[in-house]
Computed example of a mutant assay.
Amino acid sequence: MSEMTMKQAAERALGLIDLTNLNDDCTPADIETLAARSSTPHGHVAAICIYPRFIKQAVGLLKDSPVRIATVVNFPEGGEDTRDVVRQTEAALADGADEIDLVMPYRAFMDGRRGFAETQIAEVRKVIAEPAQLKVILETGELKDPRLIHLASETAIAQGADFIKTSTGKVAENATLEAAEIMLNVIRETGIENHRPVGFKPAGGIRTVAESQAYLALADKLMGQNWISSATFRFGASGLLDAVLAEIEGRSNVSTESY
């Protein structure tokens, strides 16, 4: 397996980015900027990830674009009112969202209430019809224990997740290679019995091409070099796009944007 160059990593990463603005002070003008940034001279990102209140605006801005619209529900706390989370999901889909990033009730899961987490994911899954997709955010930086991360990954996949995602980007520890390895191994282990593809999304704190390269290399190693595509792998990031474009264009990147 030949080692990819930084430019190759940047070129691969571009079409895998869920270009994200989940800042508390996000405005409609910020969404206009995000939508404009989503298509570049070198290709487009996979999706933009935004708060539900901006979905209708984004649908209008991206009506002629292949870029998908992702939004978050039960975000960022991972609360326990499942009926409300289902209503959030239904409203987001009605407004035009293509992808739902659900924060699983990870505190309940950590307290041993696995069945509660299973039920919430399953109830949300029921209202998401193809081609819309469900990404389940595990909040691995809070779960911490590798055994819990492994079990949470299995649980989300068993209840119908199309992707499992590391983090909200709103806690002290977000995406790590250690959590990524556990999650990718679960995807690999469960792939045969599921008979359906499940994707992986590291999110939070990935800002440089070198960081993205490390995740791509890990996925290549564990899943095979032909596995990665926008259907199976996403980066949840904001500042990464600037770094990727700078690398592709051979200029220095000065962005300090965070997730």
Rank of each mutant, 00 (worst) to 15 (best):
E3Y: 13
G15Q: 09
D18E: 12
L19T: 02
P28K: 07
D30Y: 00
D30K: 03
D30L: 02
A35E: 01
A35M: 07
A36S: 11
A47W: 04
A47Q: 05
I50D: 01
Y51I: 06
Y51T: 08
F54K: 06
Q57L: 15
Q57R: 11
E77V: 12
D84W: 13
V85Y: 05
E90T: 14
L93Q: 04
E99P: 09
P105M: 01
P105W: 06
R114I: 13
A117T: 15
V124W: 09
L134Y: 09
V136R: 10
I137Q: 03
K144L: 13
L148A: 13
L151F: 02
T155A: 11
T166F: 07
T168S: 06
G169V: 03
A175D: 03
L177Q: 08
A180P: 06
A180W: 02
I187D: 00
T190F: 10
E193L: 15
E193N: 11
E193Y: 14
V198W: 01
G199P: 05
I206T: 02
I206A: 04
R207F: 08
E211W: 05
A217R: 14
S229M: 06
S229H: 09
T232A: 02
T232H: 02
L240H: 00
L241V: 00
D242I: 00
A243Q: 10
E247G: 07
E247C: 12
I248Q: 01
G250C: 12
S252G: 14
E257C: 10
E257H: 12
